[in-house]
Amino acid sequence: MPAPPSAPAPGPEAAVTRFVVLGDSLSEGVGDRVGTRWRGWAALLADALHADTDGGVMFRNLAVSGAQSLDVAERQLPEALALRPHLASVVVGVNDTLRRTFDIGLLARRLDRVCAELTAGGAVLLTACLPDPGRMLALPAPLARPLARRQRAVNAVVHALSARHGAVHLHLDGPAWTEDRDLWSADRLHPGERGHRAVAAAFHRLLRERGLAHGAPPSPEPEQPPPTRTDALLWLATAGTAWVVRRCGDLLPQLLLLAAAELRHSATGTRVRLDARADLALSRALAATMRT
């Protein structure tokens, strides 16, 4: 395993840290609105990378809501490489699990290429494993289990690639994150302001341990009031309904097939076959990326 990249060597360009963010809505900042725009954990972290006496940060957020691994590899990566980042965040995968085209092998190859090209350009990577959406949305078990199986596979790939490329890695799928509802917005899929601040502070701590963050950590206290039950109901009636409608044509038929298979195998006591099939696909995906 190669040694983790270190901080940029001192020189004319090292005074300013170039921080580029790739990914989906979580990194775009959805759930942490300031005025008419999303802010999010990445912007909070950027502000905390340097002390006031340091050179400063060039921050660029390329993350887009709904992005999948293909979007990161084909659209965001070229723009990120052109910016020659010192730090590059790559957090993606949940949207892949919500598509009928989900393929853990393809996702692994795409993410491996993204990580390899960024680190080859001298960037230190920031990565995170994420909670599965079925659990966060409290879906019925036949619907939740297939999504959980997919998200576990994505997280396993992210774990392996993070170790391979020396990434600063954050575990956002553990109970400390998923069971604290104060960290999440009304939609249950994105962190609220408190959650974004917690993610920023956790990344800041890990970066500080590597000597890559010198400013004060982001404050954990939100500036906006937390979402109320009314906010949650309003989201379900408006944005939540729109989200379901957008996904129905793509995800729903496949999800219903997965749920039917889940119920069938549960009834016959053969659900272990589904787990074994997923484990085999994951093993092949990991083996393929390790050969490159």
Rank of each mutant, 00 (worst) to 15 (best):
V94N: 02
V94W: 01
N95E: 13
D96G: 04
R99Y: 05
R99F: 11
T101F: 01
T101M: 00
F102I: 11
F102S: 10
D103K: 05
G105N: 10
L106F: 11
L106Y: 14
L107V: 09
L107C: 13
A108V: 09
L111H: 01
D112A: 13
V114T: 05
C115K: 03
G122F: 13
A123Y: 03
V124I: 15
V124Q: 03
T127N: 10
T127Y: 11
T127H: 03
A128R: 09
C129H: 14
L130C: 05
L130P: 02
P131V: 04
P131A: 13
P131W: 02
D132V: 02
P133K: 01
R135N: 15
M136H: 07
L137Q: 10
P140M: 03
P140N: 05
P140A: 05
A141Q: 11
P142C: 01
P142V: 03
L143N: 03
R145Q: 15
R145Y: 10
A148P: 10
A148R: 15
V157K: 03
V158A: 02
H159L: 13
A160T: 11
L161V: 00
A163H: 07
A163D: 15
R164A: 14
R164D: 07
H165L: 10
G166E: 09
G166T: 08
G166H: 04
A167I: 01
V168L: 01
V168T: 03
H171V: 15
L172V: 09
D173W: 02
D173F: 12
D173M: 11
G174V: 06
G174E: 12
W177R: 15
T178D: 12
E179K: 02
D180M: 12
R181P: 06
R181F: 10
D182P: 05
L183I: 09
L183Y: 11
L183V: 04
W184V: 12
S185I: 09
D187Q: 04
L189V: 07
P191I: 08
P191D: 04
P191K: 08
P191H: 02
E193R: 05
R194L: 03
G195W: 04
H196Y: 08
